[in-house]
């Protein structure tokens, strides 16, 4: 091990130590990497196991699922037929998708510009406002649900998609996420753009947004997932159940005296897929580091 004489982190640059560069340790690279691969594989397998169980469960009969059968069965189509016969699967997927997509778009737009505003133009006053806004997420929803419901009822907005998504658009969490990310946004770039005569709003749109692609990707995945899985509020605000969502559909399946676990596993598998797909698509943004936009 070579002793690092001075490894000081300052303004994102590392002051070079005085010593020479490390010599090769004489161990093949693949062997040095082996513990990493083994560790990651163990974590990955443990992470995927319940998903595997769900996939296999969707192909099995109810008694087989109860018996924790781990091999695929031949009951997938029967389960699917039972699922669509009992519930409006297409409708639930559509309503959930609509809620999740609209919420994600609106939330990213509203919260990212706010987070940017908080950080790039930060002042004591804005920091105080930020900390005040944080209080909004610290109370359990079960406590504010009834007053919120009463408010929507007074406005005649019960049973509307609008009422489902409105409370989920502006969240302290997303604002904080963008505020924290904006901290690593280089101020030299900002200044250069200002000198070029770009207005503050277009600096945000043309420079900040593309630079912070990975933050947007993370925010989109999390917001989509939360909106997709949101249960209590849609269940209550959609009093007449006209726009049943996937979590509501699954809840219906669990309410009977006799639960068909094969069908249930298929339903929860279908309900879990969209978030996974969204992640799979967006995770590429976590690969390349800062893109050429600012260099």
């Amino acid at each position: 091990m070579i002793v690092v004489t001075s490894l000081v982190v300052e303004n994102a640059t590392v002051v070079r130590p005085l010593g020479p560069a490390p010599a090769s340790r004489g161990v093949p690279r693949w062997l040095r990497k082996a513990p990493t691969y083994i560790f990651l594989t163990i974590v990955a397998v443990a992470s995927v196991y319940p998903l595997y169980f769900m996939v296999v469960g969707a192909t099995n009969t109810s008694p087989d699922v109860l018996g924790s059968r781990l091999l695929p069965g031949g009951n997938l189509f029967a389960n699917f037929r039972a699922l669509v016969a009992a519930q409006d699967l297409g409708g639930a997927l559509w309503h959930s998708s609509l809620n999740a997509v609209l919420t994600t778009i609106a939330a990213l737009a509203v919260c990212s510009i706010a987070g940017y505003g908080f950080e790039v133009f930060h002042s004591k006053g804005k920091d105080r406002v930020m900390s005040l806004l944080l209080l909004a997420m610290m109370i359990p929803f079960a406590a504010t649900m009834i007053p919120l419901f009463r408010m929507f009822a007074q406005f005649g907005l019960l049973n509307s998609t609008f009422a489902v998504i409105l409370p989920a658009i502006s969240t302290p969490f997303l604002i904080l996420l963008f505020r924290q990310s904006a901290r690593s946004f280089p101020h030299e770039v900002l200044e250069a753009a200002r000198i070029d005569g770009l207005s503050e709003f277009w600096i945000f749109v043309r420079i900040f947004v593309p630079t912070m692609r990975s933050t947007y990707a993370a925010a989109a995945v999390i917001t989509f997932m939360n909106a997709w899985n949101n249960f209590l509020w849609p269940r209550v605000i959609l009093v007449a159940n006209r726009y049943q969502t996937m979590p509501m559909l699954i809840s219906n399946f669990r309410a009977g005296y006799v639960i068909d676990y094969g069908v249930l596993m298929l339903a929860v598998l279908i309900a879990s897929l969209p978030t996974m797909i969204v992640f799979l698509v967006l995770q590429r943004s976590f690969a390349n580091g800062i893109t050429g936009a600012i260099k």
């Binding site: 409708g91 309503h95 609509l98 509307s160 409105l166 006209r242």
Partner: peptide, 15 residues
Amino acid sequence: GLAACGSNNDTGTST
């Protein structure tokens, strides 16, 4: 928001 409102009226029923 309006689009969201509007969609209430023409999507199918699930009950």
